[in-house]
Amino acid sequence: MRRFVSVVVVACLALVGHATPAFAHNSLIGSNPANESTVQESPSTIELTFDQPVQTGEGLNTIAVTGPEGTNWTVGPAAVASNVVSAPLSDLGPTGTYRIGYRILSADGHPVSGEVTFTLAKAGDGTPAASTASDGEATAETDEGGLPIWVWILGAVVLLGAGLTVALRIGGQGR
């Protein structure tokens, strides 16, 4: 029992060395256009403000705008400045409710997603984006050298099997 206590003490000492800054889940604290607000003209940029810095990186943060009747609107690549994520927006079209969907990488490494809605009071002269354009681009980008998830899982199972075989071999010799 005394040796066990010493193990626990060592483990607890290790804890103190481990205590590095940790972060919580980011949450949205504000946006421009604000949630459930009404705007007269179509905004040229979308800004989402979070309570903590957002991780930067290509393809990690996305913002999308969906208009009335499910139309897609062109949003440029999202840029991160500390805790603000912004993206340029082209002219919007008909009046109605628009939904800003976002998915960002939180400081703690967890993706956080959500949505903000606003109403456009005065019609703009933009036209909706072809819905497949952005999807196609994304597919092409990640397809390079990308392996489907089941291939990885299969690899893991093979690794496990090999390890088990080794373990049983050694165990057999030990007897």
């Binding site: 990690l60 990640t142 397809d143 990308g146 489907p148 998830i149």
Partner: peptide, 10 residues
């Protein structure tokens, strides 16, 4: 894959 949704993981 969760952070970068797409058809595969490189």
């Amino acid at each position: 894959a969760e952070v970068k949704p797409g058809p595969g993981v490189s």
